[in-house]
Amino acid sequence: MNARSLFIPITLVLVLGFLIGPFLIIVAASFSAGETLNFPPQGFSLRWIAKVFTVESFQASFAMSLFLAIGGTAAALVLGIPASYALSRYKLPGAEIVRTVVSAPIIVPGIIVGLALLRYIVVPFQVGITLALFVAHTALVLPYAVRVVSASLDNLRSDIEEAAVLLGSSRLGAFFRVVMPNIRGGIMSAFILGFVTSFNQVPVSLFLSGPGVRTLPVDMIAYMEIVFDPSVAALSSLLAFLSIGIVFAAERFLGFSRYV
């Protein structure tokens, strides 16, 4: 009995220490006064946090990543919500094929997706890198959008919209008036999940960079290749707190974890 009551706290401390410890080290290193990444940090200063805001390429790549994460996720939802609705409410011919095709981007390694897009879309069709990144991030988020929205549609009884249709509402009207309000939480959750996935994505974007166009994580790697100072740690901490803040707020107001 005693052994069992000890098992729970010990396991939790060890596992969480392993999972979160490195992050705490990064946070601590962000406030170091030293020239390189160090633990324990040498002294306390805000110089590296301040430096993050002065590196110009970070500003441009942050804007790019933000645009991709918001725009790409929104586009994935516009494609994904109708598809999820068809998959969950209709007898769709070839439903399995549709499901496989839209969820394929999760299984294929990102580095291959990036390379394939570069070789067969960007170069031959003279597509701009920004557009290619936008399309790639949309495709990447699509599986999550379909999965999360489908899950919330499946949890919603389908007879209410059938009733609405029987009562004379158009199918479209029934969807917007009856279904949408009920899956709003699921859509928001899909949006947040997609946002975080897209924002932290590296391999797809690795090959898709051009003069002046880079996503933030790729820019961070490029920066680290030149300068190995704690400013990357500082930037990582800031971004992590941003993500955590968004997810925390989402959980608080929408019950995010019910859908993921």
Binding site: F67, I70, G71, A74, A75, L77, V78, G128, T130, L131, F134, P211
Partner: peptide, 27 residues
């Protein structure tokens, strides 16, 4: 939601349009 898409589409076009409008660009 649609507004967001139109907005990001517009941003995209502006971004590419602006690059072309610039007269002299050295890469």
């Amino acid at each position: 939601m649609k507004k967001v898409i139109f907005a990001s589409g517009a941003v995209l076009m502006l971004a590419t349009g602006a690059a072309q409008a610039q007269e002299k660009t050295l890469t």
